[in-house]
Computed example of a mutant assay.
Amino acid sequence: MTKPIEFKAGSLTAMSAIVRELDNVKLSDTLHTMLGGLGEFFAGEATIIDLSQLAKAPERADWPGLLSLLRRYGLQPVAVRHTPEHLEDSARKAGLAVLAADAGKMSAERPAEPKPAATPTAPQAALDLTPPTGGAPTMIIERPLRSGQQVYARGGDVVILGGVSNGAEVIADGSIHCYGPLRGRALAGAQGNTQARIITTSFAPELVSIAGVYRTFERGLPPNLAGKAAHAVLRADRNGQHSLNIDALKLD
């Protein structure tokens, strides 16, 4: 007889949101800078709030406000870990599971210093809500990024040799170099680096962003750019306001 419910051991691949300050105003500003204010960016990914690097624990935490902020960008918070003891009860009341500090099986965090030639097989980028503190090696992705996959080059550039599919996401604190079709979403200068650039041999993205200044292409790509080698860069006017310029590149 088939049972109406059954339990089996399993694992959950989840985004880690590394939160160093429980100040929702500062977190909102940081997310806006990183993601250009684009709502639903993460498309419903399960998320664990990681407080292991919390600078100073407040007496109270506005969990509902934090959950609402993360959900605004398409994250689905399910748990919190490394939680200060006096904040555990309020986290549970907000609907979060409080994990033990070593409950790492539920998370698929990217190492702080990614190894070159590492290609994720599922969304695995850790969302770090603080600026980089030093240089990082260039991340090199040798295979194509498929729909639903995501990489984050924290503190440096990313080089993609095989292209980016629709529905995939590339985020870098530095520049993005794509030597194949660039589809999906590409966000360079994620921590506010206005000198970052996006360079590709075949321009066909859903969205490009540099330091929070972004462009989308719901109405189609400009004919002079579609499928062509292109270069995206920020340019400042006399008032210091940045605009995102995308120009075709001549490779011959």
Rank of each mutant, 00 (worst) to 15 (best):
V78C: 15
A79D: 11
A79V: 15
A79W: 15
V80T: 06
R81N: 05
R81E: 03
H82C: 05
H82Q: 03
P84C: 01
E85C: 00
H86Q: 02
L87N: 02
L87F: 07
D89V: 02
D89R: 00
D89W: 00
D89I: 01
A91Y: 02
A91G: 04
A91E: 02
R92P: 10
R92E: 14
K93W: 04
K93Q: 10
K93P: 00
A94H: 10
G95I: 08
G95Y: 07
G95F: 12
L96N: 10
L96F: 14
L96Y: 07
V98D: 02
L99Y: 07
A100S: 11
A101G: 03
A101I: 01
D102C: 04
D102R: 06
D102M: 08
A103L: 01
A103T: 00
A103G: 03
G104D: 13
G104I: 09
G104Q: 09
G104V: 10
S107L: 12
S107E: 11
A108E: 03
A108L: 06
A108R: 04
A108V: 03
A108W: 04
E109F: 06
R110Q: 11
R110F: 09
P111M: 08
A112F: 13
E113C: 12
E113D: 07
E113T: 12
E113I: 15
P114A: 05
P114F: 00
P114G: 00
P116W: 12
P116V: 10
A117N: 06
A117S: 12
A118L: 10
T119R: 13
T119G: 08
P120T: 00
T121K: 12
P123W: 14
Q124R: 03
A125G: 00
A125Y: 01
A125Q: 00
L127V: 02
L129M: 12
L129I: 10
L129D: 08
L129Q: 08
T130N: 07
T130W: 12
T130L: 13
P132W: 06
T133W: 06
T133I: 09
T133K: 13
G134C: 14
G134D: 09
G135F: 11
G135H: 02
A136M: 09
A136H: 10
P137N: 14
T138I: 15
T138C: 08
M139C: 14
I140E: 15
I141Q: 14
E142D: 10
E142T: 09
E142R: 13
R143H: 09
P144C: 08
P144I: 05
L145Q: 03
L145E: 05
R146H: 11
S147C: 05
G148R: 01
Q149E: 11
Q149C: 02
Q149F: 03
Q149M: 10
Q150A: 14
Q150D: 07
Q150I: 10
V151T: 08
V151N: 07
Y152H: 12
Y152A: 03
Y152K: 07
Y152V: 01
A153C: 08
A153V: 12
A153M: 11
R154V: 09
G155W: 05
G155M: 04
G155N: 09
G155V: 03
G155Y: 06
G156K: 11
G156Y: 14
V158F: 11
V159M: 15
V159C: 15
V159N: 15
